[in-house]
């Protein structure tokens, strides 16, 4: 288990058919959060076949990479709804009272939350906090 990473990417709102055929450059994880909206973490360029598509930079999320053993030990007991069995799969909802997004891959689980909830996640799930160096960098940027 690692300290959380800031997850940058693109948020795209378009027609469902256009999102089915959208292309994202780079090594991306695409969260289809609704039929007409995706968040593509890791993407910097998107090609969406919809002239009315809205493509915006998304920088508001942080994520923790967990093994399935860690997920079962720390997270699963806080989830009161059925988890997906297929892989990969996205699930989103409340866990321990926090709105989370869970990405189930073949290798492990990515726990994603809005960065405003990062410290609550650390407290409620006993997950590692941000590395001190990252905190100092952010503090320096805010002060500058």
């Amino acid at each position: 288990m690692h300290a959380p990473e800031r997850l940058d990417g693109l948020r795209v709102v378009a027609t469902p058919d256009a999102l089915d055929h959208a292309w994202f450059e780079g090594d991306v994880i695409v969260f289809r959060i609704a039929h007409d909206e995706v968040i593509a973490f890791g993407a910097v360029v998107a090609e969406v076949p919809d002239e009315h598509a809205i493509v915006e930079r998304e920088t508001a999320f942080v994520g923790w990479g967990l093994s399935y053993a860690e997920f079962d030990e720390l997270i699963a007991r806080h989830v009161e709804w059925p988890l997906p069995v297929e892989r990969p799969a996205l699930a989103q909802g409340l866990a321990a009272g926090l709105p989370v997004k869970l990405w189930f891959d073949h290798d492990g689980v990515l726990l994603v939350v809005s960065s405003g909830f990062a410290h609550e996640v650390v407290d409620r799930f006993r997950l590692p906090a941000f590395a001190e160096t990252v905190t100092k960098q952010v503090t320096r940027q805010v002060r500058a």
Partner: peptide, 17 residues
């Protein structure tokens, strides 16, 4: 527990809504 079935996310407790 009161459950609402969201078309996007599936069955979820009412506290999420």
């Amino acid at each position: 527990m009161l459950i609402i079935t969201c078309p996007n996310c599936g069955p979820r407790p009412v506290e999420e809504f």
